[in-house]
Design a protein around this nucleic acid. Structure first.
Length: 310
DNA sequence: CACTTGACCTGTCCGC
DNA sequence: TGCGGACAGGTCAAGT
C-alpha cells in the first residue's frame, strides 16, 4: 500500500529523527525481511552513523558513514516507526513516537508480532541510546538490505525505474514518450509499471485517472495529446495533495511517528464505490483492471471497448 | 518482445 | 460460533 506519497512521508520522518545517529544494535526475526549475514552487519552497519535519507520510486535509502546504505522497500504492509528511548510508555501507557508526543496510532505496542527488524540508535557523540527504529511488516513482502551505496544504482530494478513524477524534468511530453512503449495496454496497467513512471500504485492511479477523466481500461494508443496532458497534471496534483496530507492509510500505513495519513478522507474514487461522483453525482463503481480493484465514475470515465481482435 | 497471471504472505471480512 | 474462501495490493518470475 505505501506508494510514493507514503514513502515520501516516511522518508521525511526519518530525516527528522535519525540523521546523525549511530547504529548500536540490530536484531531481526526474519531472514527474508533482512537477508544480510552477521559479518556484513557487524562490519558495515554496527557503529555506522546515518548521514542521509533519500527516496527513489517506492524505495527508501538510508546512507551510512561506512559508504554502505540500508535500502528498504515497504511493499504492502511495511512500517518504519521511531520511538524515543525514554518515551516508550507514557503515564497512560500509550507509546510516545518520534519526538515524544503521544500519538493516536494503529500500533498498540512495540515490538509487536509484525516487527521484523529492530535498530537501536545512539548518539554519535556520547554513546547514549536515543531511540529505536522498528521495521514492521505483517505480510513479509517488504525487505531491507545492506548494500554498498555505490551498488544501488547498479541494481537491475533500480536502473529500470521510470522518471520521478514530481521532479521538474517530468513533463507531459516525457509522459507521452514513456507511454509509447506500451501502446496496446490498458492505461492503468501501464501507470502501475514502475519502469514507465516511478512511484504510482493502485490508489493514486485510480485517483489520477478520475481527475483526468480517463477510463482505466482505455488502451494507450487511444489517448490523445490533450488526455495525456490532463493525465500528467492529474498525477502531479494527486501526488502533491497526498504528500501534503501525509499519504493514505487504508488499513495499515503509518508514518515514522505512528501517524495515519489523511488523504483517503478526500479521495475522489478510491474505496468510494456506491457513493456519488463529486463531479456528476453518478455512483462510483468498482471493477477489476490489471487484476486490481479499480474505482471509476462510469459517467466521467467512459470508454467503449472494442471487440478484441484476436 | 509485449503483455498477463500467479506467487509471495497474513489478517480481515463475508457468507454459510 | 466456526470455518472456508475471497480479498487486499507491490513486485517479480513464469506463463501465454
Amino acid at each position: 500500500m505505501p506508494e510514493l506519497p507514503e514513502v515520501e512521508t516516511v522518508k521525511r520522518g526519518l530525516e527528522k529523527f535519525v540523521i546523525g545517529l549511530s547504529v548500536r544494535q540490530v536484531s531481526s526475526d526474519n531472514v527474508k525481511s533482512f537477508p544480510n549475514n552477521e559479518d556484513e552487519i557487524k562490519q558495515f552497519l554496527l557503529g555506522a552513523s546515518i548521514t542521509k535519507v533519500s527516496r527513489r520510486a517506492k524505495l527508501i535509502i538510508i546512507e551510512l558513514s561506512t559508504n554502505y546504505s540500508l535500502i528498504i522497500h515497504l511493499k504492502m504492509t511495511g512500517q518504519l516507526v521511531f520511538v524515543g528511548i525514554d518515551k516508550h510508555k507514557s503515564n497512560d501507557n500509550t507509546i510516545r513516537f518520534g519526538g515524544g508526543h503521544p500519538t493516536k496510532s494503529l500500533i498498540k505496542e512495540l515490538p509487536d508480532k509484525s516487527t521484523r527488524v529492530i535498530l537501536t540508535l545512539k548518539s554519535t557523540e556520547n554513546n547514549v541510546n536515543v531511540g529505536i527504529l522498528y521495521f514492521n511488516d505483517q505480510r513479509k513482502f517488504g525487505w531491507m538490505r545492506l548494500l554498498p551505496t555505490s551498488a544501488i544504482k547498479e541494481l537491475q530494478f533500480y536502473k529500470k525505474y521510470g522518471p520521478e513524477p514530481l521532479e521538474n524534468g517530468f513533463t507531459a511530453e516525457i509522459l507521452k514518450q514513456r507511454l509509447r512503449s506500451r501502446l496496446r495496454s490498458a492505461i492503468k496497467a501501464v501507470l502501475l509499471d514502475q519502469s514507465v513512471i516511478a512511484g504510482l500504485g493502485n490508489i493514486y492511479v485510480d485517483e489520477s485517472l478520475w481527475l483526468a477523466n480517463i477510463h482505466p481500461l482505455k488502451p494507450v494508443y487511444l489517448l490523445n495529446d490533450q488526455e495525456i496532458t490532463f493525465l500528467h497534471r492529474a498525477i502531479q496534483e494527486v501526488l502533491s495533495d497526498s504528500i501534503a496530507k501525509g499519504g493514505s492509510t487504508d488499513r495499515n500505513y503509518i508514518d515514522v511517528e505512528g501517524k495515519v495519513g489523511q488523504y483517503l478522507l478526500t479521495a475522489k474514487v478510491f474505496r468510494r464505490q456506491g457513493k456519488p461522483c463529486y463531479r456528476c453525482d453518478q455512483l462510483i463503481v468498482k471493477l477489476k483492471v490489471a487484476s486490481r480493484g479499480t474505482h471509476i465514475c462510469p459517467s466521467c470515465q467512459t470508454y467503449i471497448a472494442e471487440v478484441p481482435n484476436r
